[in-house]
Design a protein around this nucleic acid. Structure first.
Lengths: 233, 233
DNA sequence: CGAGGGAAAAAGTCAGACTTATATGTCACA
DNA sequence: TGTGACATATAAGTCTGACTTTTTCCCTCG
């Protein structure tokens, strides 16, 4: 996704980033630039660039005479797509997935409501197409086809909301959905009720019924929460 | 806030970052590392580190034989606190403020609901203290005192939600609230109804009434939307 | 036992040379 | 005249070595 391993410092990040987010270097750990440069067999310049990037993600802090210190998790830029990807690929995956699903449950209903007001005719058409694609792939173990349309559906909703910050969550939601299909338990066909809800959301957006689009999407996200046993007692 | 101007490359970022987010270099603009290094009177190494950071924020893309290209706004990492700060400080401010307020309206109610379930006794106490502070400063043009307690209130709610992604929005919300007091029109004392709502939210959280905390917080955020003329017709 | 000063360590900075990828222009050939 | 291969120029990428600066730690001295 996006820009992988661009240049040497990119390769270093692909190794070091996941190692940090994965807890291999616990918060408070002190790394030294020279050692890292030797370990990754790159020059200090390249290593320094990599450290700068990690620093901009608030994963580490560089201090003179001390070294590169791993920051506590609560200070990380957890919205950085790169950080999210690293965490989803590592031991933190279940925790990250729960956080993101809760975020979805907050954002997506509101986004759907806004989409009902702001969506262009083209976006409405896209949405309907996605929903139909989901229906068409909802039976007979066509999980991949279903996933593609599901991801596209949510991406269109978030984009059509007209809010740039919602729109940028498209990639994240896509990755959560992909994770559910690929890594988590998903042997059977998708829940027919969920499929119907998507179709109805597309309808509501097309008709400009914001309240209905929001409520229906809320039901979708409640389903996602229940899948992860995030209850509402 | 956080880590300003750390080192030479930090100073470069403080100039170049706002220039890019402020539209001084429109998307598609091509910058050259050597020129920039001369302009900022730093070595190429330092300039390269700065470019790497901008690249990790998806503000620019570095291509061989071409230069450093400014990416279109829709690709920026708009959740990066640094980017948010730069945009809030520039011409993009009103737009950014609206985006963030819409985000708040999605996130904060859900966060309050979760806080009602997960808040510790200490957090409940903090919350009550903040609400009382708001009441105490709600009359007689004590805007600064009111602001401090308001920011703290929302930060506690977001933290107490137990969701790391919500918690990291504390800084952002604080900056939005501060902006409203300092930059936008805020001559009079705060709306008494808003003050009451905060007190009631604190109550609801203390009593573990998630639905009520959520609904009351939704009313608070609706007020924030109305202040910016973001209607719901 | 505390304050002050010195030494060491690691990041920070700089300059210069070299490598690599790639956009672009040129020229021959169809 | 159009098209493809090839040469060239360019700017980023990389490496190395020397030097500076800050900050911690420790040792001495009062």
């Amino acid at each position: 996704m996006s820009t992988p391993g661009r240049g040497l410092h990119g390769h270093v990040l692909d190794s070091l980033g996941p190692a940090i987010t994965g807890g291999e270097y616990p918060p408070g750990s002190v790394l030294r630039t020279d050692e890292l440069a030797q370990h990754f067999e790159v020059s200090r310049s390249v290593m320094r660039e990599a450290v700068r990037v990690l620093e901009s993600m608030h994963l580490v802090e560089s201090r003179r005479r001390v070294g590169v210190i791993v920051r506590p998790k609560c200070e990380w830029n957890v919205y950085d797509p790169q950080v999210i990807r690293w965490r989803l690929a590592g031991a933190d995956r279940p925790h990250q997935l729960r956080s993101l699903t809760v975020l979805r449950s907050a954002v997506e209903p509101v986004a759907a409501g806004l989409a009902a007001r702001h969506a262009t005719a083209g976006q409405c058409a896209e949405l309907t197409e996605c929903a139909l694609g989901m229906v068409a792939n909802s039976r007979g173990h066509q999980l991949e086809g279903y996933l593609i349309h599901d991801m596209a559906f949510h991406r269109v909703i978030l984009t059509a909301s007209g809010n740039e910050m919602f729109a940028r969550l498209g990639d994240v939601v896509a990755e959560v959905l992909a994770g559910r299909t690929h890594h988590e338990v998903m042997f059977e066909d998708p829940d027919p009720a969920a499929v119907t809800l998507h179709v109805q959301v597309a309808e509501a957006v097309r008709e400009g019924d914001a309240a209905r689009a929001e409520e229906l999407t809320r039901q979708i996200t409640v389903g996602a929460l229940q899948e992860l046993d995030i209850l509402a007692p």
